[in-house]
Structure formats: structure tokens, C-alpha cells
Design a protein around this nucleic acid. Structure first.
Ligand code: FES
Ligand code: FES
Lengths: 157, 157
DNA sequence: AAAATTAGGGACATGAATGTCTTTATTTTA
DNA sequence: TAAAATAAAGACATTCATGTCCCTAATTTT
């Protein structure tokens, strides 16, 4: 009757692949922007180890959302405007990729998550969810970029 | 530049559909077992509002894992043995459905989540993950069944 | 013994997420 | 002006989770 961990399986698809690439790409782009360089799609895909064409799609969404700025042509690429890095929250990146359908998702798949009609897992799940909510809404792109620049965190492997 | 919530989108697929059905089904089966009744597949699918054939698959896995016991024939169905309800943790149900590949999943999709090679989100993500881990490993099937029996929680709609 | 009722299991179908390819548009460089 | 470099966009391909169908096995009821 060995139970043991398994937690990682539960939270396995926390972000979609598209979202993972978007966040990692945004962090890399922001770090390059700090050094005054634009990042090309090819650079990005190499540095975050992601499929190039698929990553391009997510970058287009970030661009349309105004989170990053794209420039065509030689020496073009993607950048994050300096004053934006601290303003952009991780929640905004997720919103840009997964769309703006704001609804309340129940952990056990009920139609809506609500206090009036809670599933059996609701009361235990809610505090964890709120904790995560706090984090994604209060962490800026700049917050995540700084560790990368200092070499303490990584974007691939 | 409206950001606002979006958190629910992030955690959208916390459990797979199969896992959601499995947990909800197990809760219902356990509640029926407390009353001395077996639950048939048809009953279960109706009570948790899930696709019957698909739910059958997940019940087979729970059965093979020894979490529930199945009986064929008239007045057969599924049951949870009384002393088991308090022993079974939610983590075991998830393990039974999603398999036993125990690995460490990084929130940003790096190959492994580790302290030595952390992604930029690691330090913020880890406490939330640990909180959730605590909960799924320490919540028993019985814990979730009691609210259903008392009418305080729900399994559908 | 026959019929009815239940779960088990394999094959197939569908849909969504992921990923690829090709062409077009824009800008810079030569 | 021509060529090269880059992103944008649409069509297509693949994979995987989800879901359905149909037949089989086991048990109980008649
Ligand atoms: S009702 Fe299920 S998590 Fe809130
Ligand atoms: S390395 Fe990314 S969450 Fe731990």
C-alpha cells in the first residue's frame, strides 16, 4: 500500500506548454533587453530549448498583448521595454497565452467553483490556490529575470 | 493594461479528467459503502455526472490498485471496504490513475525540478507545491466523504 | 438451465494541444 | 534596386487525452 509522493504528477500540467515557453521566452527576452540587445526567434528557441515555429506562435500573442515588442528585418527581434519589465506580472503572460475567459475552475471538475456549492475538495484546495494566485499576480517579469542575469537560475535543461 | 485575476486559468488542468472522475467516483462509492450499498457503474455515472464508458476505465484502474472492490453480476457494483476509507489518501487515487512514473516536474518545463539547477520560478513555486503535496497526502477518502454524507459538499453541477 | 445484470477489456472515434511547413510582409544591408 | 534577415500568418501534421462501442466474463435471479 505504498503511497509516497505523486504530488508532481498532480501538478504536472500546471502551465500549458505554450505558457511555459512564453514565460521562459519573456524572461530571456527581458534579460537581453537589459543588455540593450534584441533577441531573435532563433536565439530564443536555442536559449530556452523550445521548438522554434511553435514558440513563434506564443511570441506573436505576447506581442499582440503588448508584453513584448517585435521588430522585423535584419537586427530585428523581440524586446521588453525597460520600464515594462517591472510592471508586467506573470499572470499577464498567462492571460495573454491562454486567453481571457475568466471563470472559476473547480479542482474536481464541477461546473463552477463556489462557496455555495462546493465540491468535497474545495475547502482544502482553496488556500493553496489563493497562495498561487498571490504569487503569479505579484511576481514581475523583472523579478524572474534578475536570477537569470546573476546566474542563479536557468531556462533550459 | 488590465491584468486582474487569471489564476483559475493557470491551474485549470490541475487534475486530469480521468483523475477528477476517479476522485469523485471514489467519494460517491465510499459514501454508498458507508450505507451498506454497492454502487453500480450506472449509478456512479449518474451521481457524479460523468461519461459512463470513460468512467468505467478509471474504475478499473482503481479496482486493480485495490482502492475499490468490484463485484460482477446482479446487485454487483463497486464498494470501498470500511477500514480502507480512512487509510486511502487522495494521493493514492491520483497515483493509480496517472501511473507511477515518479519524477520531478518543473513549473516552467525544465527537464527536472532541482535545487541545483532551478528555473526562475522555482523558489516561489516550491512552497505552494509543498502545501498542495501536504494536502493530497494527508487527506483521506473518508475525509472527503463525510461532507458529502452530511450534505455540505457536492459531486456534480 | 436460461435469462438478466453487472463489470472487464479491446478497438475505434473525436477533439484539443502541440508541433511543422510554406508563404508573405517588413526592414536593413549591400 | 536587389538581396538578406527577420517576424507574421495560415495550412497542415502529429500526439495525446478524452470519449464511445461492442463483445466477453462472471454472478445472480428465475
Ligand atoms: S468547488 Fe471544487 S474547488 Fe471549489
Ligand atoms: S526547477 Fe522549475 S519549479 Fe523547480
Amino acid at each position: 500500500m505504498s503511497l509516497i509522493l505523486c504530488f508532481n504528477l498532480i501538478i504536472k500540467p500546471m502551465f500549458s506548454k505554450a505558457c511555459e515557453y512564453a514565460i521562459r521566452a519573456a524572461i530571456f527576452i527581458a534579460s537581453e533587453s537589459e543588455r540593450g540587445r534584441r533577441a531573435s526567434l532563433k536565439d530564443i528557441a536555442r536559449e530556452i530549448d523550445s521548438p522554434e515555429a511553435f514558440t513563434a506562435k506564443t511570441l506573436q500573442k505576447l506581442s499582440r498583448s503588448g508584453i513584448i515588442v517585435s521588430t522585423k528585418g535584419a537586427h530585428g527581434g523581440f524586446e521588453v521595454k525597460q520600464d515594462m519589465a517591472t510592471k508586467i506580472k506573470i499572470s499577464e503572460i498567462v492571460l495573454a497565452i491562454d486567453g481571457d475567459k475568466v471563470y472559476t475552475r473547480c479542482s474536481l471538475g464541477l461546473h463552477d467553483c463556489s462557496e455555495n456549492h462546493p465540491c468535497p475538495f474545495h475547502s482544502r484546495f482553496k488556500p493553496v490556490r489563493n497562495g498561487l494566485k498571490e504569487i503569479v499576480e505579484n511576481t514581475s517579469l523583472r523579478d524572474l529575470t534578475s536570477g537569470l542575469v546573476s546566474g542563479d537560475t536557468f531556462l533550459k535543461i
